[in-house]
Design a protein around this nucleic acid. Sequence first.
DNA 1: TCTTTTTCAGACAGTCCTGACGGATTTGTT
DNA 2: AACAAATCCGTCAGGACTGTCTGAAAAAGA
Lengths: 224, 224
Amino acid sequence: MALMRRARRRDLNLENGQSASMGWQAQKSAATQRRVLEAAIACFVEVGYARTTTTLIAERAGLSRGAMLHHFPSKAEVVKAAIDYLHTKRLRAFRKAIAAIQPGNDQVRSALRAYWAQVTHPLFFAFVELKVNGRTDPELAEILDPAQAAFDEEWTDTARELFPEWRDDPNGLETALDLLQYVLDGMALNLADGRPNVHSDRMLDYLESRLRELRPLVSTRAAE
Amino acid sequence: MALMRRARRRDLNLENGQSASMGWQAQKSAATQRRVLEAAIACFVEVGYARTTTTLIAERAGLSRGAMLHHFPSKAEVVKAAIDYLHTKRLRAFRKAIAAIQPGNDQVRSALRAYWAQVTHPLFFAFVELKVNGRTDPELAEILDPAQAAFDEEWTDTARELFPEWRDDPNGLETALDLLQYVLDGMALNLADGRPNVHSDRMLDYLESRLRELRPLVSTRAAE
DNA sequence: TCTTTTTCAGACAGTCCTGACGGATTTGTT
DNA sequence: AACAAATCCGTCAGGACTGTCTGAAAAAGA
């Protein structure tokens, strides 16, 4: 039984759609834990990582601190779980956005917009908070780095699938991906508020042209 | 006299080269204050803004907390003064780098490298710390925003001077400047450690080509 | 030399956060 | 119904940080 509880807790971090399979009261536990994690992430976004206290998280989750500390015995555990949760959430949103890209449509533009949406999403701010604080917090970096690496890998794999014509020019593909990432990250950080403006619109157009330019010519280019 | 002290303190924040003009013992005071501010900035870089405590700053400056609180009556004042100090320091370093660019040399490359040096400098991490924490700390943002704006303005003015041939294409110039800033900021953040690698080198080359491309043709282009 | 001002150091109270504990309530099982 | 376990809550001591206070040392002026 204690074994099942542990398993249950693992499940939450990886998936959160399957609540029917287990008929226990554990559902409530899982729901509570999810509430806590979402509250934690919301705190990262709204008050910053540094000022996120266990009191604040519990309050926001509609829970007492004691109750929260029952599910997550220490603050570090909450943070770790929240990072995993955030990571899967970002990845899921990203996959969804990518899956919506049809081969018939303008793939470059779609991928660009998908990444841009990714980066202007509030969750990205949470990630930035963690990343910046991770620079001076080795313990945090240790949790964060794998997540970041997994996200990057997923992204490049997806890109390779989406643009098979780039297969023979890995250097060009890497350049394009780096360019995309750097520009959008830099833009997201400088825009502070996620609102698009004249700078971001112009830069997105410009960037789109450059990516098109970097892309090898496809033999049958019906989309362009 | 108390009036002079105040004036003296102002002077430090704006300039710190002129210690000969005032023959007072105030020099020691100025030196101490400078030590404090440099210690504060070093703390931002090394342990992050959030974990920077007055105790840590004083310790690092080789001072007692009481002594420090004599010069800066509260932590907020230290932070404010440190930001001003950091700002002038970055600006000075930047001006120096720009001034070294000769019309005869490759101006695009030089300007690019100057900005890149700017962004890989430790002081940039301090700025990032402040910027990110400013997102959720209005009081900090209030101090930071003017400094950032001044820096940007200085940078664009310098660029306008340096590249007069861009006068008739303000949109192109803005695009180029935005591109430069976004790419390098994004790169600096993703590289965490300031070390250049294959990604940064490749991107710098690519970026240089794009900037050249954006630049209007100069009638007498001896430098190219 | 004596006085005044400035600079520096240590000690103090007040506040906040964390983690631990004991008890109450709810849920699942027999 | 009765018992066991899980879930939840309030309180506590310990530690850290900030800001204020008092007093000593050093420098300037008379």
